[in-house]
Amino acid sequence: MRPDHRQLIEQRLLEQYPRFYRLAYSYLKNEADAQDAVQDAACKALRSWKTLRETKYLDTWLYRIVVNQSVTLLRAKSRWGGDETELENLSVEDRYENTDLLRALDALETTDRTIVTLRYFEELKLSEVAEVVQMPLNTVKSRLYRALEKLRNALKEEA
């Protein structure tokens, strides 16, 4: 394990900041929280760089930490947040036109939502998605298909 991993992590965090920020934002739906989530993730990554075994996993490892941090923050908010849904809808409708699909996406189980987001929005390969969520490739595939099915049904119902 080389100490320069830390520098590499630092560099990648800064380079890829927009991607990590958008990913966090897609969960948290507001600027302050998304920034917090990415910063927390950066702290975690830099403190636990020793758990990164090989640099070829750097990107998926960072994605994983950002996702975990975003989900943790999201859960914490829904515990403490009170009128969270209203806030969420406000900012959502600000930015998104396809609120029906977006809402269906948010309603998915967290892991499924992560899989869809990484695959379609971040455009990761399925094998990379599998690394991020740490599941076998085939499980990821079947969860993805199932999630898409759910989205399709949700849209039908709304239509």
């Binding site: 930015r95 036109e97 396809n98």
Partner: peptide
């Protein structure tokens, strides 16, 4: 696909990267 475009157009906060660098 539309949602992906909207995702891509999520605005990155002006000083976000700078804050991150400070944090690091």
């Amino acid at each position: 696909t539309q949602l992906k475009q909207e995702y891509d157009s999520i605005q990155i906060p002006e000083h976000g990267r700078e804050h991150l660098r400070n944090k690091i």
